[in-house]
Structures are given as C-alpha cells and as structure tokens.
Nucleic acid binder design. Structure first.
Length: 919
DNA sequence: CGCCGCCCCTAC
DNA sequence: TGAGGTAGGGGCGGCG
C-alpha cells in the first residue's frame, strides 16, 4: 500500500499559524488514521469481490470527458423488467408529495383539466427505485348540513358554491372551470365534546385541487346562501388538513411503510419502475412482522470546500467551489461503497477513494450534479448542507451559469430552487432556514437532526464527532484552504482527505445515532411522511393519529380559530428540605404520568361534557367524573375516548417492542426495535402537549388542565400515603419524610442506613401507593441517591444507585451549573470537582480547598483562556476575558457562585477573608 | 439597595 | 397558516 507521501513538499501558510494542534511536520510524516481507514475499505473490497470497474484509488483527470458511467458502482442495480399483468410491485415508500398534472386516461377521477396526483417515491427489496403516481384522490372537507337539507338540495349547493369560489379567484391562470367536484351527505359526529353519540348529516365537499379548500372554507364561514336556504355561516371540519396527510389517513398509509401494487392494477409509464395506479388499488402493509424491514436505501453524504478570500466567509458569487467529497452507503451496511472526491486541478491519489480532477469549475459542478443523478440517492446527508452546502452550490452554479446543475430531484425537469423559510416554535425559538426542493430524496441534514434531538454545548462537526464518536476532524484550518488549493497536487490531496472525512463523519454519526431507523419508526408510528419529521413540529404527528382513530368512528375534527389565551396551572414542585443527606434517599416515580392519567380517567375531546351536556343527554352521576379542575368527562363505559385509545395503542406497542427487543439477537433488528419503542414513548408524551397548545390545531384546556390537576392531586396524595404508613408507630425504623418531589416523583428519606434497605422499602412503598390509584397509573421505584445534596427546587446532585445496591452507577446532577450550557467550562469543572469531593470522597473541606485554589489560579492569570469562553453563545468572547480586569471579575463571580451553590451557610460571613487574593 | 420584568436554560 | 406544555432557578439591567 502506498502510504508514503512526498516529504518536504511546499507547505504554504501553515507555519505562521501559531496555535495548531499538530506541527506541519507531523501530518506530513505519516498518513492520518482516517487515511488508513480509507485504505482498509479498499483492501476489504479487493478481497471480497470481483473487480467491477475499480475499487477506487485512481485519479481520473476528467477534463471535459465526464461520463456517468465512469464507475459502474454509481448506478443502481439493474431493474428487471416488470409485467403489470403478472407481477405485483412491492416497495418501501420513503417520500410522498403531490403535484397538479394532466389526467391520465384509464385512471379514476376527473378527466378534465389539471388534477392533483399523489406521488410516492420508494425503493424495492432489490434496491430499485420506484416513482408511483396515484390518481383519482381529491381533497375534501366537511360542513354540517343546514336544517331541512335533503339530497335534493345537493345540486343547488354544489352549483352555488362552485360559482362563488370561481368568482373569488383573482386570477385563473390554470383555467379552472370546475372547483367543486362533488357534495355528498354523510353521517358524522363532531369529535369535540360529548353529544350522546348522535351522528348528524354532514356535507362532504370535494374540491378539484388542494388549494381550493381554503377559499371554499372561508366563503362558507363568512356566510353562504344557496337556493331558498337563508344565508348562514358554516362551521368547517377538517379543512385544515395537509393533502398528503389526508391521503395517507384515508388509504391507511403511514410514513415509510411498504406498498404493494397488485398485478393488473397498475401500469408502467416510463423506464425504471415509474408507474401509475388508481388510489383505491394500492395495498398498504402495516409495519408489522416482515413489513418492518427497511429497503436497501442509498444514503449520500457530501461536503464541499470553497476557496474563500483571506478572512472573508466564502461568497458564492465570487469564491469558487474547489472540491466536493461524496460517500454513498446502503442503509444497513457498515461501510460506504462509493468514496469520491471531485477536485479542481490535479490531486495526488488517496488509497481507498476515487479522485476526479477537473480543470474548469463549471465542469466540476455540472459533473457532480450528474454524479448525484446517477447515484440516485434516497437520502442525502452531510453537515449543514441545508443552510450552507446546497445553497452555496445552487448559487455558485447560477453565478457560473451551469444551467443543468439545479436538477437534483428524482423528477425530470423539476428545478431545485432555494427558498428562505422561517420556522418558529416555543420549543426551538425562531429559526431561519433555507430549503431546497428535491423531489423524491429525503434531505437528512445531520446538523438539523442534532439541533432538534440533542442538547449539546457545541454543534460544530468537530465537537459533535468527538462527543459521539471520540473522533476528530482532519486538522485543516479554514484560513489555509485557499493556500492548499493554490499549492500542488500534494497540498490539494491533503485538502481532499479533509473533505472526505467531513463527508464520512456525518455517515458515521447517522449510523451511531441510528437516525434513519429512529426517524422511520417515528414516521410509521405517527403516520406522517419522513420529511415532516424534520420540517414540521410536534402537532402534525398527533393530528395524523387523531384523524386515523376518529375515522373509525365517523368522528370529524372541527377547524378552530387559534388565539393564545391565559396559561393554565401546571405541576406541583414540592418545597425541598434543602441540605446534605448522608443517608439513602429513595426516589419513586409515576411512569408516563400524563398519558396514564388520560387513560385512567378517559380524558378526550369526545368524552368532554361541555356546559349543560350532562343534563341534555340525561346522564346519571355514575356516567361521568368531575376532575380536580371541575371539568367533566364521561366514563369509558359510556364512550371510550380517542386519546386514551391512541395512548393505549402506543404504550402497548411499546411494551411489545420492548419484549421483542429482549428476545432479538440480530443487532440490526434490535436497533429497529429500540428506535420503535423510543418513538412510541415520545409520541405518547406529546399527546398531552397537543391538547394544551393554545395556538394549535385543536387545543382543549379542559383536558390539559385536568391532567395537571390530577397530577397535582396525586403527588400530594403520594407524599401523604408514604409519610402515613412508613412510621415508627407502624413498626418501621423511622418516620419517613418526603424531602422533595417534582411533578411525578417523590424523594423519600426512609430513615434506613443502607441502599439495599432503601430499595426494598422503596419497591414495596411504590407498589402499595400504586394500589390507591386507578390503573394504568403506576408508581414505580426508580433509584436511590446516597449521599444526596439538595440545593433548591430543580437543583440537586447525588450518587445514583439503581441496578446494584453495592456500587453507584453515576453522579447524577440536575439543574446545577455542571449541566447548563450558559456557563464557561471553568465554572462547570470547578463545581463538578467540588461535587465529586463532597459526594464521592465525602470531603467537603477538600472541596473548599479546591475551590480556593482554582480561584487563586484565576486571579493570577494561570487559567487557560479556553476555560473561560462560553462555547455556545459567543456573547462573552475570548477578547472580553483577555484583560486582567475581566479575570478578577470572573473570579469574583465564580467565587460567589461556588460558595452560594455549595456552601450557602458560609457565603455571607467569611467570604472575603477566607478567599485568596490576587498575586 | 431591593424589586421586578426579561432572558436563558433546565426539570419534568 | 405554522408553531407541544408549565414551573422555576439564576443572571442582569432598569427603575424607584
């Protein structure tokens, strides 16, 4: 193997970079670990397979001769021809959208004008891609039929509505002549509130295309008159449902499920499995048993390098793209089978990867786009590709007039365009994002996933890789990229290795964090398309499940006008008995508290008794309950709620997944199951939040405040039960005392000396307390803290015992500076060390001594600047802390924080005299 | 100086 | 036109 690289080659720009982890000589001498890893791929492949083309360590000076067939691996496997009359087509659907197109003869639905066509993208078991056009499904919504309405009035209603919608249109460039396709009478019931299970006549209004729903809804709401019926406002139902969700709910399709098109019911319209089918002819397989499998999806990860000017962030209209590294891996495999760098100018070879050299940037971009279309990935990943790499490439291609570049989706002729999108939620704050449409490919930007799912101190690729993989990026400073590019083929080679690694790391992270599997399971459990999980909030997932459940009972969801109101009361936090406990503290938790409350008491839209409902439906007091907030709900004997049903399904499915997980030995299937149980748990917990979301699709504060009300009552009752039974007078060693509790947990000082005893009594107490509550509400023994330092509400630390009574598993810190990201590392480290000395060494004096020492070091300028910088927010920069005055100020702050946090009693008395002074 | 509102982040 | 919830500690700046 050719590891050797020419020594003593010109090294530009590195020597003057004062603070570098490695000297220039180090990386010149030996290949990095990553290079060895790359070369191993090569070896393995040479051993394992016949040479189908090249395994990849060649350098191809492309010039103008790029061809999509340069490497036979790039293409998908050959697709055997398909005979619709004798073969069925089975594929895993990974993305779903719709478009307006010409009706296809022989397909159901309207035949005139533009019609909405649902489009599914997917992959077969053999790795062939499928694009499936589904015809004949039209959007619809409901309004209650006015009194006296009969089927004889349908025609008039339809005609009049059609005419007002047409009149309402400002422009009619699609030349629509029919807006209302159909109006039918159907028996439905409003899901909001209990009305004695009486279904009423509703009008189901089917529109020609999705964007006509909103005006039709608005006009009906505003006041609509037809025939002899008086003008009136119609309350719309389900007029705010995304068309994709509407289709999926109605056809029982969930995100990422397997779809079967039976023989004789579809037709092949273009080459590789591009098919047309009627919407009622497809079979959606529930994700159970064999249908839980995942197709061999192609995942592309890429990274670009630009040659920026000194000290200026690269700008696409000025600075060239000089390299693009790409790695492609099949989902479920452990290694990428394509490893390629496109470079501008020559580049020395890298074992284990293929290098394509271009002399023109235009050609590089154009060829990479062609490469992407040839590889035809189902999933595209990378780091910050959504807000940097893709926008940069599109802008750069536009600047250079590479006109064939921006066709990156799977649908021929659709241009990928850049859009600015504003996404805001209380959870994630305001976030400005760019989006690029790429039909049929799921963009899985790892940075976006991490921002959504993980709370980290830093989100740089380097920090993230270190955190999850204990691996670093290749060491190349941004400032020298241009110099490396302007050097020779060796310096460009170094850049290419760096670029390859930046494409490789996201793949590794995706795998380690099981993102694809977990997101797929979430899509299957909640029923929404995969892309919604990254582009939308939490609510859509509950809506999808709610609609599915409601449909079974002919219940319909009203459109409510959304307006923020007053916050409602939440959970109780028990006043802590602050202090240091050198005795075991048992912790008891209600598992899935809010979901179990909703199930136990049958809380739902459909069971809510609004004012006067109890009397109107002549319900007896045994038929309903009154919650702690005074709201009333019918019992499940009268009507079982939708939300409790959804929750039961989710939690029982979770139980199943967990038992299957225990039995399963295949690591890949275990991952799927673990992802599934996690998705199920998260979904169950977000149902409560949905009912309390006042700016939401269907808020119901009666439900959410009843839930928290029950919770408050239960934690209080738990405290009383425990303290009343575990007493000296009942024969126990001591009177138990609940020293703290938050929402669904109580921390109990049982007065026993050992962890083992605390566990035994804790378990017994949990079971006994559980018996006082309605199933499935259950209090569980969780853990023992010993010793335990209770600083304040939501701030404590302790040694954590759970599986073993002999050794602690970890030091658990909650709410303290050590777990907060708005402190500099110095403070976090100092407090962490002090806590260790207090809890593990049981040496508070040692903690004091250590704190004094650190503060003294700080005052004397002996602390590394990196310890003082807050990594996340750059509000306090290194500059700010560079001066000595800043050190003194920080020392003062650190001292007071440390003392106040850990030694509140000594804080105000001797602080200045017992503290070190500056040197 | 104390108080209050605001912000950030966390616990659940 | 799209966005899960409340409780609560602690820092900080403005104000009386």
């Amino acid at each position: 193997m050719d590891f050797k690289r020419r020594n003593g080659g010109p090294f530009i720009g590195g020597a003057s970079q004062a603070k570098r982890g490695k000297t220039a000589g180090e990386w010149e001498d030996s290949p990095s670990q990553f290079e060895e890893e790359l070369s191993m791929f090569d070896e393995a492949e040479l051993d394992a397979e016949e040479m189908e083309g090249q395994a990849g360590h060649d350098v191809i000076p492309v010039g103008d001769l790029f061809s999509a067939d340069l490497n036979p691996r790039w293409r998908r496997p050959h697709a055997p021809s398909l005979d619709p009359s004798s073969d069925s087509l089975v594929f895993q659907q990974i993305d779903l959208d719709y478009y307006l197109g010409e009706a296809v003869a022989g397909m159901p639905g309207q035949s005139q004008g533009k019609v909405p066509i649902v489009r599914m993208f997917g992959v077969t078991d053999s790795g062939n891609s499928v694009c499936c056009h589904i015809h004949g499904f039209a959007p619809y919504f409901y309004v209650p039929a006015p009194s006296g309405f009969t089927s004889a009035h349908l025609g008039e209603f339809k005609k009049e509505l059609n005419s007002v919608v047409l009149k309402d249109m400002r422009s009619n460039k699609d030349n629509i002549s029919v807006t209302v396709l159909a109006v039918d009478i159907t028996r439905k019931e409003n899901m909001y509130g209990y009305h004695g299970k009486r279904s009423l006549d509703f009008l189901r209004i089917t529109m020609a295309m999705p964007r006509l729903i909103a005006p039709a809804k608005r006009l009906l709401e505003l006041g609509f008159k037809f025939a002899h019926f008086p003008i009136q406002s119609y309350q719309p139902y389900e007029a705010n449902i995304d068309f994709e969700i509407r289709f999926m709910v109605d056809t029982n399709v969930v995100g990422c499920c397997w779809i079967e098109l039976p023989k004789g019911n579809y037709r092949v319209s273009l080459c590789q499995y591009e098919v047309d089918v009627g919407w009622t002819d497809l079979i959606s397989h529930p994700a159970e048993g064999d249908w839980q499998r995942i197709a061999p999806l192609r995942v592309l990860s890429f990274d670009i390098e630009c040659a920026g000017r000194k000290g200026i962030f690269p700008e696409a209209d000025k600075d060239p793209v000089i390299q693009i590294a790409s790695m492609v891996q099949r989902q479920g495999e452990t290694e990428p089978f394509i490893r390629t760098v496109f470079t501008l100018q020559s580049c020395a070879s890298i074992v284990g990867s293929q290098i394509l050299c271009f002399t023109q940037e235009k050609q590089l971009l154009q060829s990479w786009a062609e490469f992407l279309r040839t590889v035809d990935p189902d999933i595209i990943t990378g780091y910050n590709i959504q807000n940097f790499d893709f926008p940069y490439l599109l802008n750069r291609a536009a600047a250079l007039k590479v006109n064939l570049f921006p066709y990156l989706g799977r649908v021929r002729g659709i241009k990928s365009v850049l859009k600015d999108l504003n996404f805001q939620s209380k959870q994630m704050g305001r976030r400005e994002n760019k989006t690029i449409n790429m039909e049929g490919r799921v963009q899985f930007d790892l940075l976006q996933i991490l921002l959504r799912d993980y709370k980290l101190r830093s989100y740089t690729l380097n920090a993230v890789s270190y955190h999850f993989l204990q691996e670093q990026k290749e060491d190349v400073q941004h400032s020298i990229i241009t110099d490396l590019q302007n050097g020779n083929e060796q310096t460009r080679r170094r850049l290419a290795v760096y670029c390859l690694k930046d494409a490789y790391l996201p793949l590794r992270l995706l795998q380690k964090l099981m993102c694809v599997i977990n997101y797929m399971e979430m899509a299957r459990v909640t029923g929404v398309p995969l892309t919604y999980l990254l582009s939308r909030g939490q609510q859509i997932k509950v809506v999808s499940q709610l609609l599915r459940q409601a449909m079974k009972q002919d219940l319909v969801m009203p459109v409510v006008k959304t307006e923020g109101g007053e916050d409602y009361t939440g959970a109780t936090v028990i006043e802590p008995e602050k202090g240091y406990y050198s005795v075991p503290i048992a912790t008891l938790d209600f598992s899935s508290l809010y979901p179990s409350i909703m199930m136990a008491h049958n809380l739902c839209y459909t069971t809510l008794l609004q004012k006067g409902s109890a009397e109107k439906n002549s319900l007896s007091p045994e038929d309903f309950i009154k919650t702690p907030t005074g709201d009333m709900f019918v019992k499940s004997s009268v009507r079982k709620g939708l939300l409790p049903e959804i929750l039961e399904n989710l939690l029982s499915a979770r139980k199943r997944a967990k038992t299957e997980l225990k039995k399963e030995t295949d690591p890949f299937k275990r991952q799927v199951l673990d992802g599934r149980q996690l998705a199920l748990k998260i979904s169950a917990n977000s149902v409560y939040g949905f009912t309390g979301a006042q700016v939401g699709k269907l808020p119901c504060l009666e439900i959410s405040q009843s839930v928290t009300g029950f919770g408050r009552q239960m934690i209080e009752q738990t405290k009383q039960l425990v303290e009343s039974k575990y007493t000296i007078s009942n024969g126990f060693q001591a009177d138990a005392k609940v020293i703290y509790g938050d929402t669904d947990s109580v921390m109990v000082k049982l007065g026993v000396a050992t962890v083992r005893e605390a566990m035994d009594i804790g378990r017994e107490a949990a079971e006994w307390v559980s018996s006082h509550f309605v199933p499935p509400i259950k209090l569980e023994f969780e853990k023992v803290y010993y010793p335990y330092l209770l600083i304040n509400k939501k701030r404590y630390a302790g040694l954590y015992f759970s599986s073993s009574a002999d050794t602690h598993e970890k030091m658990d810190c909650k709410g303290i500076e050590t777990v907060r990201r708005d402190n500099c590392p110095l403070v976090a480290n100092l407090i962490n060390t002090c806590l260790q000395k207090i809890l593990i060494d049981r040496d508070p004096q040692g903690a004091v001594a250590h704190a004094k020492e650190v503060i003294s070091d700080l005052l004397c300028n002996r602390i590394d600047i990196s310890q003082l910088v807050i990594t996340k927010e750059l509000t306090r920069t290194a500059q700010e802390y560079a001066g000595k005055q800043a050190h003194v100020e920080l020392a003062e702050r650190t001292r007071s924080m440390c003392w106040r946090t850990l030694f509140p009693s000594t804080h105000n008395t001797t602080s200045s005299s017992s503290c070190p002074s500056p040197c």
